[in-house]
Design a protein around this nucleic acid. Sequence first.
RNA 1: UGGGGCGUAGCCAAGUGGUAAGGCAUCGGGUUUUGAUCCCGUGUACCGCAGGUUCGAAUCCUGCCGCCCCAGCCA
Length: 568
Amino acid sequence: MSETEKRDFIRQIIHDDLESGKHSEIVTRFPPEPNGYLHIGHVMSICLNFGVAAETGGRTFLRLDDTNPGKESKEYVDAIKRDVHWLGFDWQDRLTHASDYFGQLYESACRLIEMGGAYVDSLSADEIREHRGTLTEPGRNSPYRDRSVEENLDLFRRMRAGEFGDGEHVLRARIDMSSPNMNMRDPALYRIRHIPHQNAGDEWCIYPMYDFAHGLSDAYEHITHSLCTHSLCTLEFEDHRPLYDWFLDQLKPEYRPRQIEFSRLNLAYAVTSKRKLNTLVDEGIVSGWDDPRMPTIAGMRRRGYPVAALREFVTRAGVTKKDKLIEMGVLENCIRETLGEQAERRMAVLRPLKVVLTNYPENTVEMMEAMNHPGRPELGTREMPFSRELWIEQDDFMEDAPRKFFRLKPGGEVRLRFGYIIRCDEVVRNTAGDVVELRCSYDPDTRSGTASSDRKVKGTIHWVSCEHAIDARVRLYDRLFNEANPNAVDDIHGALNPESLEIVDGKLEPALAELSAGQAVQFERLGYFCADEKEDSAAARVINRIVTLRDSWAKLEKQAMQQQNQVV
RNA sequence: UGGGGCGUAGCCAAGUGGUAAGGCAUCGGGUUUUGAUCCCGUGUACCGCAGGUUCGAAUCCUGCCGCCCCAGCCA
């Protein structure tokens, strides 16, 4: 990193610690609980934790924070590993689990009991809640708070041996029931759960709580900077840090990590709360965790969002302690920028309208040369068959066109991209009065690329030869919510965007037969698209729209509509 | 009404006592066989508010206001 480069406050701390010699190597960790799929908020945490280590030649652990069996599963573990790898990060041999440390954690708990820093409480969960007090009133000590070390040790060992049922006892830290910080009012350290564990099997029936396990796990791994953000992988911020430090002060592990908190990233028109994400999946509002509308990493991957765009997005969002709600447009622009540079261009018609070139010979096919990328000639060209009958976009024709509409209209001319200039001579309707066909004539002197082709017309539209077109099912995705901050809404049902998915039967140019999985292309004038990783096949194309192109015409139209409505 | 955190333009965000960077959006204009891209231009930000210290304050002090988080045997 150069001297002049801007650093966020965490990178500044890390830079200072390296400069002062406090640390010679940075070690971080990304510690998700394997109880759900990773989402856009986690991308921020992953990029930060892996990023700061990579930038300084340090190391990062992927630690599965699996202290609560019953909620956690192998399915989630596998998904997390896949997602982190997909984002381009490698933990190498540093895949760990909180459950790897259950033995050490148990020993530490016993030591804490011996030091008088923990006791076994036999109150029920309800009673403990009653004793905890409120935000404004101090709590009361449990009647079991002053059990002897011997009794506590004996009880705790028997808890571990399985002599008690779930909830009969709990191990608590002995701190201060009147602390203004609720987290310090004798928090639970261990609870009894007779449930097998996804990693540890049935070796244990007592499991450590997050606060106890997390700081010590950081210490065991010699984490230099434990970077936390609200309810994503870890804590609710600085309220827990006194407790994090308390355990370290008491148990004095050989290595002492430091926790630093930063704010979570909220994306407008998207939810990241686990409960709401679950609702979407469980009620079938989306097709699953990897539905292309989901803000999960799996969903965004399937949608076709490039990794580079996601990483750029979190960079633009920044690392601070301020609550933020970032506009969807920022993400979309990152995607457009990345794909605009990378994606080859193709042509496809989403809502086909037939055009017959009445003066074009029948049974004739010309091959038109089309650039694969206007800004990158090295990506070469391809040939597009051109014939008498073509598909164009319904939106590219208007009977009563406003002055500024410069696509096709009766008597008007338009350029077919990489083809000829055509004129609309006649509009054909069905019995219902719908426009079903346009009869046009082409100007033979205007073939693209020829010497006489430089005649200018206002509009250029895309097209596909009917005879050669490939049928495709194309899914047009839009934001899942109409509410800017659906995370803040109690009932998400009313906030849903009913038009988040539209499916159309489109026509693709022949070159798209070779579209491979994971390859994003730009359909000219429409947007960026990719083949669906699950449902697409060569026999039946299923294409996802990643994002539209910026569309200043649509914006103009919308403004015109609004003005009209105001007048009326 | 207890504790913790945060308030700089529509959205992000630099800035750490010397007179408000940058990005995205917006709005103009130019180029263009994608109404895309690209290029150029475009912002009077009561720096949450009010006082105070100072030659000088977004930066220091005091008071106030607003928003977020905490009362799981979840993480």
